[in-house]
């Protein structure tokens, strides 16, 4: 998934694709998630029983589909960048909207999952596992929405044909953010849903 990043149109292979300011943001976000994951590990080590009991109540089907949706979104946004490199504007824009649609699929499924949890009376104050579960997934959920907004904005901007070979910073910036959201989800999925 991260290979798409290196497929950028940058002439100099040592450059990061997209805007450096976004990479500061991505680093900050990864730092926050990283500390959050460490805190999860710390809390889990101190109270494994609560975490195992909570995790038993998590179904794996929907989150697996969600993982595939986000990875597919990453693939389609990288394909969009490549299409821009080849100046295939219409294909590129369609691929961007496809990414947004895949994100929407994630959001809908996730809302269903949240609704089930709320109906079961689970809140941030239920216990430490559910605190982490809700905090991490909701925090990430907001990032998916922000990613969709960013990709959608780029898709709208792209209508005037501003992203051309050699002028792809904007679209690479958006793609980098999406990949970050995807990457965080993969770790989150492994840590919260799978690792028991």
């Amino acid at each position: 998934m991260n290979q798409s990043v290196t497929l950028s149109a940058s002439a100099n292979p040592r450059e990061v694709p997209g805007d450096l300011a976004m990479w500061f943001f991505i680093l900050a976000e990864l730092l926050v998630f990283g500390v959050f994951f460490l805190a999860y590990g710390y809390a889990r080590a101190h109270d494994p029983a609560t975490f195992v009991a909570g995790q038993r109540q998590l179904a794996l089907g929907v989150p697996t589909v969600n993982t595939l949706l986000l990875i597919a979104g990453s693939a389609s946004v990288s394909a969009a960048v490549r299409a821009f490199v080849l100046d295939r504007q219409r294909t590129a824009r369609r691929l961007l909207w496809l990414t947004v649609a895949l994100g929407m699929g994630f959001v809908v499924l996730k809302c269903g999952e949240f609704a089930g949890k709320f109906a079961a009376g689970i809140t941030l104050s239920s216990d430490t596992f559910w605190m982490f579960y809700l905090s991490l997934t909701f925090f990430h959920f907001l990032h998916v929405i922000l990613g969709m907004v960013i990709i959608g904005a780029v898709a709208v901007y792209a209508r005037d044909g501003r992203y051309r070979p050699g002028q792809l910073a904007g679209v690479e910036t958006a793609a980098a953010y999406w990949h970050m959201v995807d990457l965080v989800w993969v770790v989150l999925f492994a840590l919260v849903y799978v690792a028991r």
């Binding site: 450059e15 997209g18 450096l20 943001f25 925090f139 910073a169």
Partner: peptide, 25 residues
Amino acid sequence: MSASFTKSTARNIFYGGAVFFFLLF
């Protein structure tokens, strides 16, 4: 080696980040 680093992206991240985290708060 410096990649593009524009004020407008920095500004958008500031506004976007501020709104995002305030809504979360």
